[in-house]
Computed example of a mutant assay.
Amino acid sequence: MRYPVALALTLLTEAPVYTAALQRVGGVRPGRAAAAAVLVNLVTHPLLWWALRHWTDGPAAAYWTGFALGEAAVCAVEALLLRPLAGLRPRDPLPWVAAGTANAASLLAGLLAGPLTGS
């Protein structure tokens, strides 16, 4: 999958999940929730994409290990960034739940879309 397609798919999948969670559960205004969703992805997505490129030529086990560790790091970074961007309390578990859910949805969308995009 080409990077612009992967980024678009990520944003189309994760932004609604983040926005709904932040708005409905966290009481964050819709515009602020959507902006936070996009911003966290614009920080983490290029970094993960770049990091995983270094594992694509090696054994599959190395790639999938790097992928799993990378996704875990992305969830943590996105959760930490969501707190100030969305104006949530420091001990609020919502960013962690939202990050895990949004990234799981995005991962599933990418796995399903891969064959459709020739990846």
Rank of each mutant, 00 (worst) to 15 (best):
R2H: 06
Y3F: 14
V5G: 00
L7N: 03
T10Q: 04
L11G: 04
L12R: 01
T13W: 01
E14W: 03
A15C: 10
P16E: 05
P16D: 05
V17Y: 05
Y18S: 02
T19S: 10
L22T: 08
Q23R: 14
Q23G: 10
V25L: 15
G26Y: 07
G27P: 08
G27H: 08
G27D: 09
P30W: 07
P30T: 04
A33M: 09
A33C: 12
A34T: 13
A35H: 07
A35V: 13
A37L: 04
A37T: 04
V38P: 02
L39H: 04
L39G: 06
V43S: 04
V43K: 03
V43H: 05
T44W: 06
T44Y: 05
H45F: 09
P46N: 12
L47Q: 11
L47P: 10
L48F: 15
L48Y: 11
L48A: 15
W49F: 15
W49D: 15
W49N: 13
W50C: 11
W50V: 15
A51Q: 13
D57F: 11
D57P: 08
G58V: 13
P59C: 13
P59T: 14
A60E: 14
A60Q: 14
A62T: 15
Y63F: 15
T65M: 12
G66F: 13
L69S: 11
G70Q: 12
G70W: 11
A72D: 09
V74I: 15
V74P: 08
C75S: 11
C75T: 10
A76R: 12
A76H: 08
A79S: 12
L82I: 05
R83M: 07
P84E: 06
L85K: 06
A86Q: 06
L88K: 08
P90Q: 06
P90Y: 05
P90K: 04
P90N: 06
D92H: 10
W96Y: 11
W96T: 07
V97N: 02
A98N: 05
A99G: 02
G100R: 05
T101K: 00
A102Q: 02
A104M: 00
L107N: 09
L108K: 01
L111I: 01
L111Y: 02
G114R: 04
P115I: 01
P115H: 00
T117R: 01
G118W: 00
S119P: 00
